[in-house]
């Protein structure tokens, strides 16, 4: 990677992530990275390819397999004024560092008013035949922990802009990158510096009849379902949450005020998760807008299976969303 003249360029999701990391490390000497195989190997998904050659081993630090250890170290470095970015090889392994995230990082500012500016990045999500330990969507775990911010971008533009915001944020930010999107999704994004604010949802597609609220890789499923519904004359609005915590209530409620019908689409497991929370917000604060039930489409309450027919059954599909749209249109 080298300096590019500014302008827009067709960029994959993973390259958008790399750009954000590169530009933030150039911009701010206190930004550095820790993780497994991020140096010469460039990371399991190559997000940091070429980084160690440019930034050196002092700022691109290969770690032994010790997630609890180096996540805890990130907290210490952050307290001393650095801005560590920790890469989980897969988001699934973030549970190995759970305690340092939820007890050390998340509660520090509350107790001491000392900021912990750190980011933990993790490639999350299913669809790659990677089985129960390399496919999870753990955002719900962390969205339940006060003191953390949880970000799950759905487009290359947002991935770059939100990762920059996460690195500049003064709180611990858990940043999940759906790995199915890494090389499958591309769009033209600015090669120059820009940010996307944490805590703001985005109306990705405008519509009048039904709102699909979603995030991450499910955004693409929602958009495809919306296109199919359009053929039947149903106008679907798609809201991309982008940030799971803090949730952008205003954008959610404004959309429901317009369409009066809500579908919550997410890849995390069903019960007591993001869908339940968004549904509760709509039911509590948007009850009078509603013309029908709030429908949740999600992964089932099961681990992510390996075998193709099992995983295909497990994941929400465009067909699932289209049939929910049909059901809800009847109201």
């Amino acid at each position: 990677m080298s300096m590019q003249p500014s302008g827009d360029r067709e960029t994959t999701f993973i390259d958008a992530i790399s750009q954000a990391l590169w530009e933030e490390m150039e911009r701010d000497q206190s930004v550095f990275m820790m993780g497994e195989d991020i140096g010469i190997y460039g990371g399991a998904f190559k997000a940091t390819k070429g980084f160690i050659e440019h930034f050196g081993p002092e700022r691109i630090i290969d770690m032994p397999i010790a997630e609890e250890g180096f996540i805890g170290m990130a907290v210490g470095a952050a307290l001393m004024g650095m801005r560590p970015v920790v890469e989980m090889q897969y988001a699934d392994f973030i549970s190995c560092g759970w305690d340092q995230i939820v007890n050390t990082a998340a509660k520090m500012h509350y107790r001491t008013r000392e900021a912990v500016p750190m980011v933990i990045r993790g490639p999350s999500g299913a669809g790659l035949r990677a089985g129960p330990f390399h496919s999870q969507s753990p955002e719900g775990w962390f969205a339940h922990v006060p003191g953390l911010k949880v970000v799950v971008p759905g487009t290359p533009y947002d991935a770059k802009g939100l990762l920059k915001s996460a690195i500049r944020d003064n709180n611990p930010v858990i940043f999940f990158e759906h790995k199915y999107l890494y090389r499958r999704l591309k769009e033209s994004i600015p090669t120059s510096d820009y940010t996307v604010p944490i805590g703001k949802a985005d109306v990705e597609r405008e519509g009048d009849d039904i709102t699909i609220i979603t995030y991450g890789a499910m955004l693409q499923i929602a958009l495809e379902a919306a296109r199919r519904a359009q053929d039947k004359g149903i106008s679907v609005e798609v809201v991309d949450l982008r940030t799971i915590y803090p949730l952008d209530k205003e954008t959610i409620l404004n959309s429901i005020a317009k369409t009066s019908r809500a579908i919550m689409l997410y890849e995390d497991t069903r019960t007591l998760g993001i869908g339940a929370e968004v549904s509760a917000i709509i039911a509590e604060e948007g009850f009078e807008y509603l013309d029908g039930p709030i429908i949740r489409i999600s992964a089932p309450d099961a681990p992510v299976p390996y075998s193709p027919p099992l995983e295909d059954y497990y994941l929400p599909s465009v067909d699932d969303v289209v049939s929910a749209i049909d059901r809800l249109s009847a109201y």
Binding site: G69, G72, M73, A77, N103, T112
Partner: peptide, 30 residues
């Protein structure tokens, strides 16, 4: 704790501040 005086406010889970202290020293080294 108080960072200005170089003392960290630790937590009950043990020894969570072993890695945190190591992380402080990593910042010093960098």
């Amino acid at each position: 704790g108080d960072l200005k005086r170089g003392m960290l406010a630790s937590v009950s889970m043990l020894p969570n501040f072993y890695p945190v202290a190591a992380g402080c020293s990593l910042a010093f080294k960098i």
